[in-house]
């Protein structure tokens, strides 16, 4: 398996810069809801968790999609939405255990991380290194 995005929530400071650069890369605008990565906030204890497709071996969205629009990319292992097939029922959003699939507000698409073709923008901007781009097998990177 190749490189993937590894998440270390302990290091996340909650700045959400990843959301803005992701939105700009994919939608050429600055809109958090267009971001493929989302920072989940536990405000009471100030725990921040960047949520993004985790290459699950068994991907629940694939199983729940009524029109078989979700598959996994052979190379990267991330979930892929076939927009031609997608009927916008949003079952996949509810099914993903990592909240990695979302619906773009004001847009008309179900969205999910595509790893920016192998050079993820969120990783490049993440100064606390809560998001890193590394071999999935290397536990030392986490």
């Amino acid at each position: 398996m190749g490189k993937t995005i590894l998440v270390n929530a302990d290091k996340c400071t909650g700045c959400k810069m990843c959301e803005l650069v992701c939105s700009f890369h994919h939608a050429q605008t600055f809109k958090p809801s267009a971001s493929r990565v989302k920072v989940k906030v536990n405000s009471r204890e100030a725990i921040f968790t960047p949520q993004v497709c985790m290459n699950c071996e068994v991907c629940p969205p694939i199983e729940v999609c009524p029109v078989s629009a979700v598959s996994t990319d052979e190379e990267t292992g991330v979930a892929v939405i076939d927009h031609a097939k997608c009927n916008l029922c949003r079952e996949c959003i509810a099914a993903c255990p990592y909240n990695a699939i979302s619906f773009e507000a004001g847009g008309n698409e179900v969205i999910v991380c595509d790893r920016c073709g192998g050079d993820p923008e969120c990783v490049k901007i993440c100064f606390p290194e809560a998001l890193v781009w590394a071999e999935a097998e290397e536990p030392s990177a986490v």
């Binding site: 400071t13 100030a46 100064f127 606390p128």
Partner: peptide, 16 residues
Amino acid sequence: ARELSCYNCPVKCKSM
């Protein structure tokens, strides 16, 4: 326990 930022800030000036 943790260091925190505001929106878009690379500086972690707040702590838990």
